[in-house]
Design a binder for these strands. Sequence first.
DNA 1: CGCCGAGTTGACCATGTTCAAGGTGGGTGG
DNA 2: CCACCCACCTTGAACATGGTCAACTCGGCG
Lengths: 224, 224
Amino acid sequence: MLMVQANSAKPQAVGAIRAEWDGSRSFAWQHGLLRTFEPGQEIYAEGEAAGTLYTVVRGVVRTCRYLGDGRRLINAFYTAGEVFGLESGELHHLTAEAVNDCAVTADRNFLQPDYALSDQRRAATFVAHVLRRAGRAEQHALLLGRRGATDKLATFLLEQEEGGDEPGVIELVMSRQDIADYLGLTIETVSRTMTQLERDGLITLASPRRILVTSMKELRALAE
Amino acid sequence: MLMVQANSAKPQAVGAIRAEWDGSRSFAWQHGLLRTFEPGQEIYAEGEAAGTLYTVVRGVVRTCRYLGDGRRLINAFYTAGEVFGLESGELHHLTAEAVNDCAVTADRNFLQPDYALSDQRRAATFVAHVLRRAGRAEQHALLLGRRGATDKLATFLLEQEEGGDEPGVIELVMSRQDIADYLGLTIETVSRTMTQLERDGLITLASPRRILVTSMKELRALAE
DNA sequence: CGCCGAGTTGACCATGTTCAAGGTGGGTGG
DNA sequence: CCACCCACCTTGAACATGGTCAACTCGGCG
């Protein structure tokens, strides 16, 4: 059942949802309110009540935690078709923000315990998403465990290359600061390492946000 | 239904399983084969077929990945009552090994797709476990994202203190090398940082593996 | 044109790694 | 019972890597 109603962040008609979904991956939860966010805008904050399941329709969302000293650690980037906002407890323990202009659907049915499991088909999809999230988080932990900045960046770039449309071409939607906070590095180190990879002939920086992989083999070797 | 049969690693009668479980947390999957492992012994390897759900009965299990250069990254430590071995794909993408002498039950019913979801109660428990694992992995990623060795070790020690029996007392079952690989540090840095924490009066090293927290407040402050 | 945010680069410094040398304690065997 | 061994841990000194601070470039936009 579709919910359409007024909302603080530009709600849109349901037709738009279906339209945007066309040509994209399909999902079991094709209902919920469509909301759009501007770059940097907060979707929910750490500590708020959880229970809503979000699906990215357009753009990229990041989940992160702010530390006492002002530093920020980015947990994950979510792109079109991916879901986020699930929590094991009552509260969000991460903050979600829009990286660029983006649209997400919010399904509040997940406030009801076991709603997701009432139907076996829905349960299967639900579990698949949670397992995917667990795998992704473990992948990220493994990435952060790596020693060198070069290792980390190479792994990150390959990750982004996978998610992109054209093989060998990486269109970064996030800033250097975002990358730094995702890799546990500083913006300067990210920048330097990027330049170094270009000098070594592994990549070409068409622009800061557009990267061409010129030696996939060597890049993969760095990521092991 | 209980499965009891011969196995390479010391299978035991089912009575023993129930006996060991008494007084411990209860689980929806109280069936499966009990197997024991010696310190360092492999339970399953990265790349092997998945589908078995393991529950730790006694001892501690670590899941890790070995990198090309011989380095090892530890993903998690599992203690009595916790489950591991779930995968989103067909294969294990981590290796599981016994940290000390330990016993686990192996339930191969999870080879059948959607077995876990056939019953809603079982599905709920299953989802809870996967969500827990996701949360834990994200926690670990956040830990690894921290800059200082002191921050990391303080966080790790608090984590261990939580899991222990006596407040303020930490019994480490894992070696310094294990800790180093879990925190993305070297064994020397772990050792030095441990000593430094003792010099600063936050902890007392009764023995390398037995630690008394003498200033919980300051330790928490380090972990933020 | 001048501003501004994002990115790059350089010089110096702090932190953790590396390499190497001791300790320590629990086992085994003489 | 002691001597020895071995794995585990600690400590020290030199070194490498990434962080910090600061200057500079670049491109878009009022």
